[in-house]
Amino acid sequence: MNQVWIEALGKEFKKVLNTFQYPPLTQDIFTSDVCKEWRSILSGLPASDEALKQQMTKRLLKSTIVEIEDMDQYLLFHVKFAHKGELYQAALKLANLTWGIDTLQYTGKDQKNRLIWGVSITLVFALLIASWLLSQKLTHQTSAKQTSPALETSLSTSQWWDDEQFVNHIDVIQQAAEQHGYLLLTEEELETLVDKQVQDSIVTRLAESEEKGDQQEETSNPEESETDPDKETVELTIQPGMTSPDIASQLVAKGLARNEREVIQLFRELDVDKQIRSGTYTIPRAATYMDVIDILTGR
């Protein structure tokens, strides 16, 4: 998987479409057969095909990318989304600048919903504590002086909490929650935290997979390597007239890339073929694909 696609993992599908200028996703991907199939997998879908198309197209645009596969003739974007407390993964096919739905499968319960439910319980617990603290404070005040009509009204309604009361006493609630080892988050903060954890997990797994692949290549082909593992940099010479396949072959031979196909694909995606200049370059062995491109193009 090239560096550009790795950066897309864990991000919202709609944002990736706009960032990398892929064709827009429309309701046309939902044919009658697709609508029938999705109704057999997902519960609670609208009876009308038009309503289903509109609802699920929005759901896919807000979904999160978990994997991108290059199938030579087309690309497969694997995205995840939640529906009725359950997680599903759909494979969206991009061929000839046209989107289509390849597969849809159930992947498990929505853990985020469980987490939000846990936070909701925590909020209720914090509210109860805050209510008790507030009632104790009010009781102490009324013992020192006669209770005013306004205070009596406050005491009689202290058990009922609306949004305004919650905001007015948020400091007391936060303090009570912290004393009991809880952290209060807004729904937006919680979603951001969960999405970041998912993205970090995906990137970590990819990095570990690439590291294992590099170790296997070094073990299986020790005599084919033209580089000295003790050196921290590699010298790369680009001759005038070299093509993308020639440069890709050089990068693989110097140990700066895993295979030629990835390099050629990345050059094509970033449109840097004609920006690479001839000459001899000193490149760090730990350089990423984007680092190598920046060095060869003089960015």
Score class of each variant (00 low, 15 high):
residue 2 N to P: 02
residue 3 Q to H: 15
residue 4 V to R: 09
residue 7 E to W: 09
residue 8 A to C: 13
residue 12 E to C: 06
residue 14 K to P: 00
residue 14 K to N: 15
residue 16 V to C: 07
residue 16 V to L: 08
residue 21 Q to V: 06
residue 24 P to L: 03
residue 26 T to F: 08
residue 26 T to C: 02
residue 32 S to G: 06
residue 36 K to V: 05
residue 37 E to L: 08
residue 37 E to H: 10
residue 38 W to T: 02
residue 42 L to F: 12
residue 43 S to M: 05
residue 47 A to M: 11
residue 47 A to D: 13
residue 55 Q to G: 00
residue 56 M to R: 07
residue 60 L to K: 10
residue 61 L to C: 06
residue 62 K to T: 14
residue 65 I to C: 03
residue 67 E to L: 05
residue 68 I to Y: 05
residue 69 E to H: 11
residue 70 D to A: 05
residue 71 M to Q: 13
residue 75 L to P: 00
residue 79 V to L: 01
residue 82 A to F: 04
residue 83 H to V: 01
residue 91 A to L: 04
residue 103 T to I: 03
residue 106 Y to V: 04
residue 108 G to S: 04
residue 112 K to H: 13
residue 119 V to T: 14
residue 120 S to K: 12
residue 121 I to S: 14
residue 122 T to M: 13
residue 122 T to Y: 08
residue 125 F to R: 13
residue 128 L to P: 00
residue 129 I to C: 05
residue 131 S to N: 14
residue 142 T to I: 08
residue 146 Q to P: 02
residue 147 T to S: 12
residue 148 S to N: 07
residue 152 E to D: 10
residue 152 E to K: 15
residue 153 T to G: 14
residue 161 W to C: 02
residue 164 E to R: 14
residue 166 F to L: 15
residue 168 N to A: 13
residue 172 V to M: 08
residue 174 Q to R: 13
residue 175 Q to I: 09
residue 178 E to Y: 08
residue 181 G to D: 05
residue 183 L to V: 09
residue 185 L to N: 06
residue 185 L to W: 07
residue 187 E to N: 12
residue 190 L to I: 03
residue 190 L to A: 04
residue 193 L to P: 01
residue 195 D to M: 05
residue 203 V to H: 15
residue 205 R to Y: 12
residue 208 E to S: 05
residue 215 Q to M: 06
residue 218 E to I: 12
residue 223 E to I: 02
residue 223 E to C: 01
residue 235 E to Q: 15
residue 236 L to H: 06
residue 237 T to I: 02
residue 239 Q to E: 11
residue 240 P to V: 05
residue 255 G to H: 06
residue 256 L to Y: 05
residue 257 A to P: 01
residue 261 R to W: 09
residue 261 R to Q: 13
residue 263 V to P: 00
residue 265 Q to H: 13
residue 267 F to H: 06
residue 267 F to M: 07
residue 270 L to I: 06
residue 272 V to Y: 04
residue 274 K to Q: 14
residue 277 R to G: 03
residue 278 S to R: 10
residue 279 G to R: 10
residue 288 T to I: 03
residue 288 T to C: 00
residue 290 M to S: 11
residue 291 D to R: 09
residue 292 V to L: 01
